[in-house]
Amino acid sequence: MALDKTTVANIAVLARIDVEEDRMEALAGELSGILNWIEQLGEVNTDGVAPMTSVADLALAWREDKVTDGGYQDRVLANAPEQQDGCFTVPKVME
């Protein structure tokens, strides 16, 4: 499947990664190359096959409902690029 520049631009928006306009064409080519190669999967007959989400043959273990964590604002904020009044800050969001 050949991806065009518009599609690549849309994916880049979804993934929140800026792509320079002059890189778009080349990137579309690279991604198309990968996807074309992947399309060989179409040859495999998967009728009636259940998708495999995890190889772990386990039951999901449940936690007890107890407060065992948190209470360390300093650790949470320790690596923050920007903070104010105990909060992370980001460019103002208009709703």
Partner: peptide
């Protein structure tokens, strides 16, 4: 996660990793 759900605490004080 094991952090508390109570309402109205200090910002980011009921936050686990």
């Amino acid at each position: 996660s094991g952090s508390s759900t109570t309402y109205g605490a200090e910002p980011n004080s009921q936050v686990s990793l």
